[in-house]
Structures are given as C-alpha cells and as structure tokens.
C-alpha cells in the first residue's frame, strides 16, 4: 500500500453574503479532478448539488459519487474539523465556507487546530456588481474590506453582468485598495479544482497536459501551466526568492522538491495567490524520500509570461551547472 502524506491542506472560502460562494462550491464539487474533498458549509440549506452526483444524503451530510463529502459546519467549527482530521478515511483536502460576515483570517486559524491540518490558502469571492458599494456601507463596509484584505486570492463573481470597462474599473479599485492583491474572474476559472485544491493530500497532481509554455487542453484555453523539473536538488534560498517574486498572474503553484541544503528528503510547495509554504514532506510512516523535483505554476493563458518564469526560476537550478546543461537535463526529465 502506498504511504500517504499525512498533511491535509485546508482552504478557506470567504466573501460577503451573495458573493457567489455556493455557486463556486457547486462548480467545484461537480469537477473535483480526483481529489477526495470535504466541504464544510455554513448554510446547508443553500447547497444545491446536482442530484445525479449524489450517492447518499444523511442529515447534514451529502456524500457524492466522486468521493467528496459536503457537510454542515454545525455549531462548533473547531470540533468538526478536529474530528474530521482524526478520521483514518478522512479527506485529502478540506474547504471551509466562511459565513458571509466572518473574517476569513479568523476562520483560517482553525486550519491549524489539529496536527494533521495546515492552511492552504484564503480565497475570497467578491461580487463585481456590488463590492464597491458594500465597502462603503455603514454596517458592513469594514467587514467587506477586512475580507478582501485577508484574501490570498480574490475571485470576482458576476463579471458576466458587467461590460469590460466596468469590470476593469472594479479590478482597478480592488488593486488600489488592496495593494498586491491577486484578482481573478470566476467566469475565467475553468477547472477550478486545479486552482483551488492542493491535489491529493498535498502530492503532485499535475494538469493533464504538462508541457511548459502551452495552455493545457482545448476546453481550458483560458488556462495555462508552466512547469519546472529537475533530477538534481534545487537551491532552497533561490527557490524562496523566486516564490516571493512571482508575478500576480500566477494564481496557484504546487510542487515536490528536493533541496541541496537538506539532502535525503523532499519538501512540499504550496502556493495560493500571495500565500506560499515550503514544508518538509510528512509521511505517515515517518520515512523520508529523496527524488526529483517538480514545480507547476498555474495562471491564465495570455497573462502567464513563460519567459519571465524561466528567468525567475533559473537561479534555483543546481549551481555550477551551465544553464544550457540544466535545460537539457530538464528536457530529459520531461521525456
């Protein structure tokens, strides 16, 4: 039997009431790309999953044929999460729908309530039509701003109801209000799972087409992935510098890498918008594994500048190897 990594990544999905969280969740559950996901929702009554996907419904829990589970947070999020993390047959990824008035940063604290859990990222939905007006509201203006400020990735919903210039102006407003924000339009996010989920238990789950510098598949023409592979360990300091300097067009990156500084074990890379982590791989039997390194960065086609990424990551490749050799080695990996 395969030895599963023991860490379960947790994503927080925030955003004000009516921002489209449920719609996004339903889309995600319908196409979860093989990840065994559990979604904890606030308002169970609002969940509206296509009946053809449902395998079983039991009180406040819906089990889907694809292995995913959707259940109510109940009256104690900490307890619900803790018990979920204790289950041997538990999920590979957990997504928590924060209430419409919650501060997602606070909810994110719960992602560390059990030794097995770790925070993957905070994704906040904003209704493109109303977010600006709400941010000025007497009762909830501060709440809406707090939510946007907490986001690693801001997803704009309902842009289909606006013309291009109106959408542009909302984006400009968010970028001015929240410097450094990563903003994406929901309608452009096909294959949500690849953007929102870490992949099975934090292991690599690469886009089906992994050739670098090309968009990954026909119905994903909006979607692009860039890939780095190396048979030799990477330079950890250079990798951290590259991650910190990633352009906003990179919405998600995942990877498993070996680092020259720590031979004999691997590290798991997770990046959601502005947040990234590079942690030692934890395996349930406590073993460490050495191996080749792989990193995938995902973003929108047309926005992802492949040359820029090549240049950014070039210093991470083993020192002393001429760049041409490094490129050659990587091409061999790919073959």
């Amino acid at each position: 039997m395969d030895c599963l990594p023991v860490t379960v990544p947790v994503t927080i999905l925030g955003g004000y009431l009516g921002a489209g969280k449920t719609t996004l969740l339903n889309r995600l559950l319908a196409d979860v790309q093989g990840v065994r996901l559990t979604v904890l929702v606030n308002d169970f009554g609002e969940v509206n999953i296509d009946a053809s996907l449902i395998a079983n419904r039991d009180g406040e829990t819906i089990s889907l044929a694809n292995g995913c589970v959707c259940c109510s947070i109940g009256d104690n999020l900490g307890l619900t999460l803790y018990d979920l993390a204790e289950r041997p047959d538990g999920p590979e990824h957990i997504l928590i729908e924060a209430s419409g008035v919650a501060d997602p940063a606070r909810i994110a604290g719960y992602a560390g309530c059990h030794p097995r859990l770790c925070l993957d990222g905070i994704v906040v939905l904003a209704d493109a039509e109303t977010v600006q007006a709400r941010a000025g509201d007497r009762y909830v203006g501060d709440v809406v701003r707090q939510q946007l400020a907490a986001a690693d990735l801001i997803v704009l919903s309902r842009t289909d109801l606006l013309d291009a210039s109106a959408t542009r102006s909302v984006r400009d407003w968010i970028e001015a209000e929240m410097p450094g924000a990563r903003v994406q339009e929901a309608s452009a996010m096909s294959r949500l799972a690849q953007l929102l989920l870490a992949g099975g238990g934090g292991t690599m789950d690469m886009p089906s087409s992994s050739s670098s510098s090309s968009s990954s598949g026909k119905h994903d023409s909006l979607f692009a992935a860039w890939r780095l592979a190396s048979a030799l360990p990477l330079d950890g300091a250079a990798l951290r510098r590259a991650l910190a300097a990633l352009p906003p067009a990179v919405l998600r990156a995942k990877g498993i890498v070996s680092l020259a500084e720590a031979p004999g074990r691997r590290f798991v890379l997770q990046l959601v918008g502005r947040r990234w982590s590079l942690e030692p791989e934890v395996r349930s039997d406590g073993s460490a594994l050495a191996g080749p390194s792989e990193v995938v960065a995902i973003g929108l086609a047309g926005q992802l500048d492949m040359d820029q990424l090549e240049a950014l990551f070039a210093p991470t490749l083993p020192a002393g190897l001429p760049r041409a050799v490094a490129v050659l080695l990587r091409q061999e990996d790919r073959a």
Partner: peptide, 8 residues
C-alpha cells in the same frame, strides 16, 4: 488563544 488553538 481562541478555540482553534485550544482544540487539541
């Protein structure tokens, strides 16, 4: 601090 940290 807070239930999240106290849970375990």
């Amino acid at each position: 601090l807070e239930l999240a940290a106290m849970m375990a």
